[in-house]
Amino acid sequence: MSPALLDFVEFSLAGLCVGALYALTGIGFVVVYKATRIINFAIGEFMMIGAYFFFGLAAQASLPNWAAIILALIAAGTVGGFLERFIFRRLIGESAISVFMVTIGLASIMVGLVEIAWTADPRSLPTFLPDRPFFVPLGSAEAFLASKNGWSFIIVAAIMAAFITVFRFWRGGIALRATAADQQAAYSVGINVPGVFSFAWILGAITAAAAGILVGSISGISSAMGAIGLSLIVVVIVGGLDSLAGALVGGLMIGWLESMASLYIGGEYKQVATFVILLLVLVVKPYGLFGTHDIERL
């Protein structure tokens, strides 16, 4: 096994693990988009507040990790539901651009609040994942995979499996799909559409917070960690805004590509590389790889 190939495999594995986190958050994003047609630019900041809630509860209030995680997810979900109820629901009918700008404004507000509560300094989260690294057998050699990466991949996979089950079989999941397909029709068959909106936002906030806690446990937290949201925007655009499968594939793909970019052309080009890909995908497929679009009418 040549060292170059080993590098490739190790970076690929790490990239796919980051990609899984992108995919998880991306799915939360797509759920919100499908239900409400809102592009949530503050997605990275939702991750940030989830991570900071966990930090506050576990490191500062000294709760056990499992309790801190659950409470942090509940708190994040509450924030999501609150914003939906008192901000986004009032903006129904406004142009997509306006609502998009509102999410940008909210991102800014969240960053400011976190800086007031916890300052802008970077912090590290209490460890809650086992720290024995994974070794993937690869011919004569073994590829190294950091424990946190590997475990977050496993956790994400479990959450996604739960997600898919819920969406297939639970009534609420079906209501959500119905609302996404046709809001008017969903209303007329008695689906509680505002309820679906709330549910989507709560779910989106919780998944973002879960991903935020995992990201924070891998690379620490700071008030600037919301910048990861930009990679997520690329993920969902490349995958197609309204496609859950697109978020999954897009997440893994962008995670892997970023890792490849930092291996072969240097870490500082990582973000640029993803944006170049974004441009290419949009020019070739303006609605992403899996997104749907309507025939234009007059």
């Binding site: 901000i87 009032r90 903006l91 406004e94 306006s98 609502v99 700008m101 509102v102 940008i104 404004g105 909210l106 991102a107 800014s108 507000i109 969240m110 960053v111 400011g112 609040l113 800086e115 007031i116 802008a120």
Partner: peptide, 16 residues
């Protein structure tokens, strides 16, 4: 941080 919050609040407030 207050500047950051005011910046965001102005966007949200005006749009709403």
């Amino acid at each position: 941080p207050v500047r950051t919050i005011v910046f965001g609040a102005l966007i949200v407030g005006f749009l709403m």
